[in-house]
Design a protein around this nucleic acid. Structure first.
Lengths: 214, 214
DNA sequence: ACCTGAACACCGTTCAAGT
DNA sequence: ACCTGAACACCGTTCAAGT
């Protein structure tokens, strides 16, 4: 099963390493990502991994960025066609659940990357770029739907806070479902995410149609 | 600064270990919890820590359970006096944010405890008990407020899903704020949590007053 | 230029030995 | 009975040496 990559094929070598790492991540999350095993899986020595990625974090961040772009591609059709915000919410939250299972389990990559080391900033760059592309796509879709519904103009505060609020809700749901406390079946997920979609959209609508008062 | 605990004072020894561990946790979360340093901080050898706690996880879980009970005590006055669900939500979410900063950063203790090892179940027991006491207190308060407002009787599904939904929202907010992406000032937190409180309560109200239709 | 693998540093955990 | 600290296992990372 050893890869047939030969001496000097740096492109393929890099791909081998990423493949090995992805395969480990997909079963067991970050805890299962072991640099020595990545090396073994890619058919190289431990030292070689470090000539392609400066650290375990950089390797993880690279895969995370790829996955976020993949996630954006996954939800793109729904963004283009969704008629109701509820539909859109369910689609995005469900797709994100799969991302979260692998990447969001134990590490908030942003926290690690932006807080600690000074070198971290350029490790985080591709990750942040991918996240921003995704957020822009979702925000655009939300605006389109809001216009189509002809709602009252959203207050400045609501416009600023709605996206963080919705994002917090989606990650909160993912965290809740993947936590050991309740092993929800997928039927449980559907029910919970649909209830949430209905509730948050109704809440945002109510807030928007209410004239600002104390 | 060495503690003056002497040979055989097992009660005090245990407290020393917990104190040292708590102090480390409070700055830097689980990543900063180091068993050798806990031993040093408690004035004992590494081996001794393991005669009081079977593992790092058990030590962590013990502190977590204590903190959750403390959290419950913190929100108790608000549970007793809160007039509006919005108020209650803000109080609980804000108090929980402090818990999350220390304990919820990188480890979902329940996931670890209930999933992996078979011995884990009795490590998790005190933790689960503390969590359940807290949940019961909150659920009771929610029921009281709902009754006082004389809302229509909540649908069976809404009653079952509202608590997970609210809990997911609260943890999602905490995760969002503590993540590196946005370093919100406390003013940012207030604004976001109040917006969220208004929105989710309005959403739940809208759901309740609507007769069930397709 | 690319790659190896022994070595370093660090940390959770164990256990034979001390008192 | 309680405690010590050397030792084991494991893992991220480095670097002198190979080709």
């Amino acid at each position: 099963m050893a890869t047939s990559t030969t001496w000097g094929q740096t492109e393929q070598r890099r791909a081998d390493i990423l493949d090995a790492a992805r395969s480990q991540l997909s079963e067991g999350g970050l805890a299962a990502l072991n640099m020595r095993e990545v090396a073994r899986g890619a058919g190289v020595s431990p030292g070689t991994v470090y000539t392609y990625f400066r650290s375990k974090e950089e390797l993880f961040a690279t895969l995370y960025a790829q996955r976020i772009d993949e996630f954006r591609a996954e939800i793109e059709p729904a963004c283009a066609s969704a008629r109701t915000p509820e539909q859109l919410f369910v689609t995005i939250a469900t797709a994100y659940l799969d991302v979260y299972r692998v990447f969001g389990r134990e590490l908030n990559i942003w926290a690690v990357l932006l807080a600690e080391n000074p070198t971290a900033e350029d490790i985080a760059k591709p990750l942040i770029a991918a996240a921003e592309r995704t957020i822009a796509a979702v925000a655009g879709t939300m605006a389109r739907i809001a216009n189509a519904r002809g709602g009252t103009v959203t207050s400045e505060a609501a416009a600023r806070l709605a996206l963080p609020f919705l994002w917090a809700t989606i990650t909160g749901l993912a965290d809740h479902v993947t936590s050991g406390r309740r092993r929800l079946h997928s039927s449980g997920w559907r029910e919970l995410v649909e209830f949430t979609a209905t509730t948050v959209v109704a809440g945002l609508d109510a807030g928007n149609s209410r004239t600002p008062q104390e």
